[in-house]
Every structure is written in C-alpha cells, then in structure tokens.
C-alpha cells in the first residue's frame, strides 16, 4: 500500500516556500497511487507550522517536537526519520530539493535501505509504477528514471516544478512522532553573509546585464561594462564567474546568491542551469546571447541571439546608443 510522506522544512514558524510546493507534489503522487499524503514535521516548538499543515488535505501530520531538533542537524533529522520509517512503513518520502533536505536525505536512504531519486521536476504513473523526470548535465538534458531499489523511495522536488497553489486545502490531524532517536552530530556556531563587506543589492536594479562562464575571463569584461553603461544596468553573474574570481561574490545570481526580477535581464554566455534560473526567471523580459542555440537559457528567454557574445555585445551597445540618440 502506498503511503506518501511529505517531509517539510520551516523557519520562524513558517513553512518553506519549496515545502509548500512539495506538499502539492506529494498530494499529486499520493493521488496517483490511490491515497492521501501525510506530512512530517521536525523541530522544537513548532505548533504554528503544525497548524499550517493541518490546513491541507492530508491523512495525518506527524510532529516530532523535541529540544534536540531545535536546530536542524543531519544526524538529528535522519535519526528521527529512520526510526519513524521503521515504525510506520511509508512507501515514499517527498522532500523539497533544498540545501537542507539534500544534505541528509541520501544518508537517510542508506540508513533505511531505501531508494534515492534526487531533484525530480515531474512524474507520471505507468503500469509498472512511477517514472520520474530529473535534469542531468546542468539541465542540458532531462532523464526519465525509475526507482529500482527497495522501498521507501526518497525523492526531492526541484524549485518551481509544482505550484504551491495547487496544494489541496482540507484538514488533517496532528499526531506526535517519537523524537528519541535524534543523534545530533554537529554544533551550530552561527550564520554569516557569504560575501564580505558591503553588499550590492541587485534586487533593486531595473536592468541587469548578467555574465556567465562564456564571457571567458575577467579581462574580457570591458565590452560588457560598456553595454551595462549604455543600458543603465547593474552587472550580475552566474556562479562560475564568481568562483573564478572574475567578479565579487555579492554579484552572484541564483539559488546561492540573490534572487532578482528586474524589468530586463540580459544573459550573456550563461547556459541556464536550474540553480541560476531560480534566481532570475521572474524577470520581466529575458534576453539571452549564447553561442549554443540549444542552451536551456533560451527556454526562459523572450529574445535570443545564437552567436558569439564577443561579436554581438559591441554591436548591441552601438545599436542601443544609436537608438537612444535617435529618440533624443
């Protein structure tokens, strides 16, 4: 019998945005398997989150509430969940594909002897069970995969794959879950900003010119800076540009950096990996210039030019300046 558990993440008494999407995914999965989902919540003093979960159409809300779970730790969470899986026998565990869940779900899959399917973006049922779809090669391809190992199947749901608004409202009963197996395996010392010094706030920019690895090096930024100047834009970047030291970390856009939604986003030499897209796909108009006509970035762009950015950018700057002058 299918029993779908949706393991949620929360902060400051609120469900994580991606956990609300995971609830929608888990409910859809449970429906496909002929059941209703159940939520699982871990933490300390989490009545408010439990109450929010009780407002969904679920069979139960399992709540492990203990001081040892006040801070997330992989050993704390995986320990409690492994014991809970042994006691209740869920067939599926659905997580949001967050930096927290991904860290401990593989360990949990090993500890419970289950199957692991990270980063799904959709699924469909067939006569043999569930076929999951997930990105591979930085989103250049999608793979259809099947879990072939023992139950339970642990899956994580990538951001934006399911709509939080599609989660079905209803009512569910919170019930306590044994938290005695929490095995805290780290000491939390604090939280700090990833970038040093004063931070550039890209979220306020109306126009962003963003560069990716395709720009080719810190010494090749001149033409990009001129384009940004002509447009009155801020300069942002994908992760490899920052990792390579071509620009400062506070200009990173994406899941580990800033989330922006300017009126215009110009992506230069950026392939369009999901971790970048989550940080900019809400932009008004997206323009992409990439020499690979098959790059995933063109899937979210309104206008695209398949070409060498080093040839196109100076021409674009000149065309913009000419258009500005003509407009007076």
């Amino acid at each position: 019998m299918a029993k779908v558990w949706i393991v949620v993440q929360h902060r400051d008494g609120k469900l994580h945005r991606m956990s609300r999407e995971a609830v929608a995914a888990g409910q859809a999965l449970a429906a496909a398997l002929g059941g209703r989902g159940e939520a699982v919540l871990l933490g300390s003093g989490v009545d408010a989150v439990a109450a929010a979960l009780a407002g969904y159409d679920l069979d139960a809300v399992h709540v492990a509430d203990a001081p040892a779970l006040a801070d997330y730790t992989p050993g704390g969470y995986a320990g409690v969940l492994a014991a809970a899986v042994a006691a209740h026998g869920p067939s599926h565990l659905v997580f949001a594909h967050t930096y927290q869940s991904v860290e401990y779900m593989a360990r949990l899959a090993h500890d419970v002897g289950g199957s692991l399917v990270p980063e799904i973006v959709s699924f469909e049922g067939d006569s043999e069970g569930i076929v999951w779809t997930r990105p591979v090669l930085g989103g250049k391809l999608t793979a259809r995969v099947r879990a072939t190992g023992p139950s339970p199947v642990l899956v994580s749901v990538q951001s934006g794959s399911f709509a939080a608004d599609d989660a079905v409202a209803g009512s569910a009963e919170p019930c306590p879950l044994d938290a005695s197996a929490a095995a805290v395996d780290r000491e939390i010392l604090g939280v700090e900003a990833a970038a040093e010094g004063e931070q550039i706030d890209l979220t306020a920019a109306e126009i962003i010119v963003a560069v990716g690895r395709g720009v080719g090096g810190a010494d090749k930024m001149g033409a990009v800076e001129e384009l940004a100047k002509a447009l009155g834009a801020e300069i942002g970047a994908s992760r490899p540009v920052i990792d390579g030291g071509w620009l400062e970390r506070d200009r990173q856009i994406g899941s580990s950096g800033q989330t922006v939604a300017p009126k215009l986003y110009v992506a230069l030499g950026i392939s369009g990996a999901i971790q970048h897209l989550v940080g900019m796909k809400g932009s008004g108009t997206i323009v992409a210039i990439n020499k690979d006509a098959g790059a995933p970035i063109f899937g979210v762009a309104r206008y695209g030019i398949a070409g060498d950015l080093h040839e196109v950018v100076p021409e674009l700057t000149a065309a913009i300046l000419a258009a500005k002058e003509a407009a007076g």
Binding site: R144, V145, F298, A301, Y303, I305, A306
Partner: peptide
C-alpha cells in the same frame, strides 16, 4: 546495487521558446 535506473534522456522541450533574432 543502484536504486535508480535511467530509462531515457532527451533534450528539454523549450517552454515558451525565445524569439530568435
């Protein structure tokens, strides 16, 4: 010993799709 098997891979369908200049 794997718990996951790849059935097939494909190029993602361009959602929306950019107007290429």
């Amino acid at each position: 010993g794997a718990t996951l098997e790849v059935l097939s891979v494909a190029f993602p369908a361009a959602v929306g799709g950019a107007q290429m200049l």
